[in-house]
């Protein structure tokens, strides 16, 4: 554990539901995160990404407008060090693989328990 990994990381939540945002905020792992923005669709997400330069992104894949995979790809291209957790009810494998191949670092299926969220965030912040 060096100082860098203990630093507070900037978080962007991309999900059209506020519920998810608040659940992430309530997570135990949130002590290492600072919410810098949230977005409800892909276009908003890219705007927020450029504006806030987040270190960590949680990303829903089933959104209106731009598709989540494309979003991931663009974010990774802009900032290769960004860590992306897909939080989605996507469930079909090809999409999950596509997300991972596009640069996501993990995924969490909706619905999820507090514990699953904590574990996924811990794995992401490792």
């Amino acid at each position: 554990m060096n100082a860098a990994t203990d630093a507070i990381l900037k978080l962007l939540i991309v999900d059209d539901s506020n519920l998810i945002r608040r659940r992430v905020e309530r997570s135990q792992r949130f002590d290492r995160l600072r919410l810098v923005g949230s977005a409800g669709d892909g276009v908003e997400a890219m705007a927020a990404f450029s504006r806030t330069d987040p270190d960590v992104v949680t990303m829903d894949l089933t959104m209106p407008q731009m598709d989540g995979i494309e979003c991931i790809r663009r974010m990774v291209a802009l900032k290769p060090s960004v860590r992306i957790l897909v939080i989605s009810a996507l469930a079909d494998k090809a999409t999950a693989i596509e997300a991972m191949a596009s640069g996501a670092n993990g995924f969490l299926n909706k619905p999820f328990t507090e514990r699953q969220l904590n574990d996924a965030l811990a794995e992401l912040l490792r």
Binding site: K93, A94, A96, M100, N105, G106, F107
Partner: peptide, 11 residues
């Protein structure tokens, strides 16, 4: 990703 996670998305 860890193996368990990967297993769930084996196409």
């Amino acid at each position: 990703a860890n193996e368990n996670l990967m297993k769930t998305i084996n196409p």
